[in-house]
Amino acid sequence: MIRESNLNALVLILLLAVPLWAVFNDEPFTITLATRAVIFALAAVGLNIALGLGGLVSFGHAVFFGIGGYAMGIFAHHAQTYTPVMEVPFLIEGTKSMPVIWLVAMVTSGFAALLIGLLSLRTAGVYFIMITLAFGQMLYYFSISWATYGGEDGLSIYVRNEFPGVNTLVPINFFAICFVILCLVVLLNALLAKSPFGLALNAARQTPQRVQTFGLDPTRLKLLAFIISGVVTGLAGALFADLNRFVSPTMFSWQMSGEIMIFIILGGVARLCGPIVGAVTFVMLEHFLGGLSDYWHIYLGALLLIVVLFARGGLVGLISGREIAHD
C-alpha cells in the first residue's frame, strides 16, 4: 500500500517524466499522447468536483467540454478568416490568443453550467443523470445542425493558437502549458475540498437536511460546485480543441460524457488524483490495445467490468486502500 499523498506526487512526476524522456529520444507522438492524457485528466478533475465532492452524477459534462472546444474553434476560425465573430450589438473580433480563448471558454461554460444546474438540480438521483444527458444531447444536435460552424463536419484550425512568450507549435511547450494548468486545478481542487465551502458541500452530499438546519442551502452549494466543475471541464475542452486543431460535434456526444465519467470511476471517485490516474490509464489502454487488435473495445469493456465488480474505489483505491469516506 502506498499512501495516497505519495501516490499523487508519484503520478504527477511520472506524468512529467514521460514526455521529458520523449523529448530527448525525439518521440513527438508520445508527447501528444501525454498531452491528450493531461487534457482528459483536466476534464475529469473538473467533473470530479461535481461528482466526487458534490455527489452530482452528471452524464452531460460533454456539454462543457464541447462549449470550450467550440469557443476555441469559433474564435480561431474567425481569426483565420479575418471576419468578426459578431458585429451587433458590439464588435467582437476573432482571436488566436490562448488566454483570451480560455477566458471565453470558461465564462461561457460557467454560464451554461449555471443555467443547466438551475434546472437540473430540481431533480435528484437518476432523474439528474438523465436530465444532464438530455442537455448534452440537445447541444450535440444543435452543433450538428449549426451550419455556420461546419455542422456535422466541425471546424479545422490551421495553426495552433498562441500563448504570449511561448512557441506553442513545439509539442513539449504545449504539453507544459496543459500540465501547469492541470497542476493548478488539482491544487485548487485540494484547497476547495478543505475549504469551508468544500466541507459544507461534502456534508450536503451526505445529509442535506443537517446542512439545511445550519442555515446553508444545499442546492446553492451544489450549484456552485456544478459551475466550478463546468468551468474546469470547459477549459479542458478549449485545450483539447487546440491539441487537435479541430472541433466537431463528437465533443458534445454522450459517449464523451461517458468517457469523462469512466476516467473518474476507473481512477477512483472523490480521490484527488483518481481522475488523472483514470485518464492516463485510459489513454494508455487506447494506445496499446488499439495497436494490438481492431476490436480493442472488447478488452477495454472487460477491464472496466472487472474494475467495477472487483476493485471498488478504482485504481487509486486498489493501490492505496480505502481512506476517504464516500457513500
Binding site: V57, G125, I265, G301, A302, L304, L305, V307, V308
Partner: peptide
C-alpha cells in the same frame, strides 16, 4: 448508479 452506468457502458 455510478457503478451501474459504468458496468453497463462496459457491456
Amino acid at each position: 448508479h455510478l457503478d451501474q452506468v459504468l458496468a453497463t457502458f462496459a457491456l
